[in-house]
Computed example of a mutant assay.
Amino acid sequence: MNQLISRLTRPVFATLLALLGCGWTARAVDAQALLPYTLPLDEERLTATGLTLAQEAAQLAQFQQYDEALARIQLAAQLAPQDPQILALMGSLHLQVGDSAAAVMALESAKAIDSDDSTIWFTLGSAYFSEAKYLQAANALEKGLGLEPGNSGAHFDLGNAYYKLNRYQKAINQYETAVSFDELFWPAINNIGLVLYEMGELEPAIEYWERSLDVADEEPEPTLAIAAARYAANINRPAAIESATEALERDSRYADLEFLEDNLWGTRLLSATEAMFRTPGLQEVLAGL
């Protein structure tokens, strides 16, 4: 979203108040009736007002005031319906409030006006991913990367789409590309471990999770993943349970299997984690959480 916000900085010379504040006096006729009068619309002023509202929406979004931002950007889109950046920001805000279907509609409209903006393609890919339309997500992200190949976040998102499509090696390739652009991108390193575990590669998966901890040692996700994998493989189970406890105490959200699934934990790892959670020691921890 920050990329969209930064592009909405064009100068604005009129406001909606200026449009509505130009008064007029009706001319009386012999029958003392008022002639109908239609206020002329100035397209340039309407567009300028739309941009002002879009700038306000962008500022509100920076402070995570998404509902207020969405109200302004929707009005901005009515005043400047052909501005792709306004439509793109509206799509991004719909995505932030969880309305992925509306996000797709807005972003498709933006793309139809400007198909050469990588940010629009990337955001559209995220919207399709949220709709569980992984093939469309991959296609949109590939289009965007054709325009901006050095975007590490987009490579990560494309890896996620390939992972959901069970194209495991292509997913790993995208995660590795993301890391090549940003060596501190621990989620990409972590997700290589997720893919490898689903492929049945236990030790390589653990190695990647350990690598992600080398970058972000306080992150609970790789710690919990290592614990679940070692518990399932019957490798020092007491130590695995201790590590899992530490991870859950850092972030209790990871005690929720649905949350783990949303974070792309696959069937094998979820099964291993659920089995580990049933141990008496962790049952006490989960009850406390």
Rank of each mutant, 00 (worst) to 15 (best):
T49E: 06
G50L: 01
L51E: 13
L51Q: 14
T52H: 07
T52K: 00
T52A: 06
L53A: 10
L53D: 07
L53T: 09
A54Y: 03
Q55I: 08
Q55A: 15
Q55H: 10
E56S: 14
E56N: 10
A57V: 03
Q59Y: 11
Q59S: 15
Q59H: 12
L60F: 11
L60I: 00
Q62S: 13
F63W: 06
F63D: 14
F63C: 07
Q64K: 09
Q64C: 12
Y66G: 10
D67F: 06
E68I: 01
E68N: 12
E68T: 00
E68F: 13
E68Q: 14
A69P: 09
A69Q: 07
L70A: 15
A71M: 07
A71E: 13
A71K: 08
A71S: 15
R72I: 02
R72K: 12
Q74G: 15
Q74W: 01
L75Q: 14
L75H: 12
A77V: 05
A77L: 03
Q78T: 11
L79C: 13
L79T: 12
L79K: 04
A80L: 06
A80C: 11
P81L: 08
Q82K: 03
D83I: 07
D83E: 14
D83W: 01
P84M: 04
P84S: 14
P84G: 15
P84I: 09
P84Q: 06
P84N: 07
Q85W: 12
I86P: 04
I86H: 06
I86E: 05
I86S: 10
I86Q: 07
L87T: 05
A88Y: 07
L89M: 10
M90V: 05
M90Q: 15
G91V: 08
S92Q: 11
H94Y: 14
H94C: 10
H94I: 01
V97K: 04
V97P: 12
D99T: 09
D99G: 14
S100R: 02
A102P: 04
A102I: 02
A102C: 07
V104A: 10
V104N: 03
M105S: 14
L107R: 00
L107E: 05
E108M: 05
E108T: 06
S109A: 15
S109W: 01
S109C: 11
A110T: 04
A110Q: 00
K111E: 09
A112P: 15
I113E: 04
D114G: 11
S115C: 06
S115L: 01
S115Q: 05
D116W: 02
D116Q: 06
D117Y: 04
S118Q: 06
S118K: 01
S118D: 05
S118T: 03
T119H: 03
T119S: 13
I120C: 10
I120M: 03
I120P: 07
